[in-house]
Design a protein around this nucleic acid. Structure first.
Length: 218
DNA sequence: AGTGGGGTTAATT
DNA sequence: AATTAACCCCACT
């Protein structure tokens, strides 16, 4: 899998050039992922163009193809368990000016209870964007559940490790919640292997408020 | 008004 | 540092 290489993309140069494999380095991936969030507001073609501008040697089409590949992987991650491929980190502690990324954020607002209006802007929780969540899944896939620090540092660069951990907590809570709802303990839950966390949430028909759970056999 | 989702912070290991 | 629990705001119903 690994979206960075899934389905090798080929760059077909006009007439005289031979096909050249498009390869994505780790650094390029990071730039790509960051740009994805930065330009998440534009869902048109400009997006690919803007992202490509940050990646010397990459065309907007390369970027779009890369994104497609990413979505494909995510779909698999999401609709199955999160399985960690055996490839782990690779020394990617390059000099990424993470200083200019991550914002000072994290202003408290609820804790103590002293609500001063003139205090530092109480930043209310900023909702995760879809892109950030996708990146979160990528990070999960790459570093595994628990390594929030790496995920924050290398993948979801717009969130601090604490935020990532928090997001993960809610994410898993929801996962199990949905799972439970779907399966009112049935004899079929018994499996030979050590159980599990599998069973793709049959997509949600819910979302609309009411879904009936049949709590009686039919 | 009650509930629950989704975010942050505090406490614990 | 990571996990767990408490807490808070807000959109819905």
């Amino acid at each position: 899998m690994m979206y960075n290489n899934s389905g090798n993309q080929w760059m077909l140069m006009g007439n005289s050039e031979a096909a050249v494999p498009v390869v994505w380095s780790r650094q390029e991936d990071k730039v790509f992922e960051k740009a994805l969030v930065d330009f998440s507001d534009q869902m048109d073609e400009n997006r690919w163009h803007n992202i490509a501008d940050r990646l010397p040697g990459k065309t907007p089409d390369d970027v779009r193809a890369h994104y497609e590949a990413l979505l494909h992987d995510l779909h698999e991650i999401d609709s199955g368990r999160v399985e960690l491929p055996s490839y782990f980190d690779d020394s990617e502690s390059f000099e990424w000016n993470q200083a200019e990324q991550r914002r000072p954020g994290q202003i408290s607002f609820g804790s103590g209870g002293h609500r001063t209006k003139n205090e530092v802007e109480r930043k209310k929780g900023t909702p995760w964007t879809e892109e950030e969540h996708r990146l979160f899944l990528v990070g999960l896939n790459r570093y595994g559940k628990g390594d929030w620090r790496s995920i924050s540092r290398n993948v979801v660069v717009t969130r601090t490790p604490t935020q990532v951990a928090s997001h993960a907590q809610k994410y898993y809570l929801r996962q199990t919640a949905v799972k439970k709802e779907r399966k009112r303990s049935s004899i079929h839950d018994i499996t030979t292997a050590m159980d599990s966390v599998t069973v793709p949430p049959p997509v949600n028909l819910p979302d609309q408020g009411g879904f009936q759970n049949f709590n009686f056999p039919m």
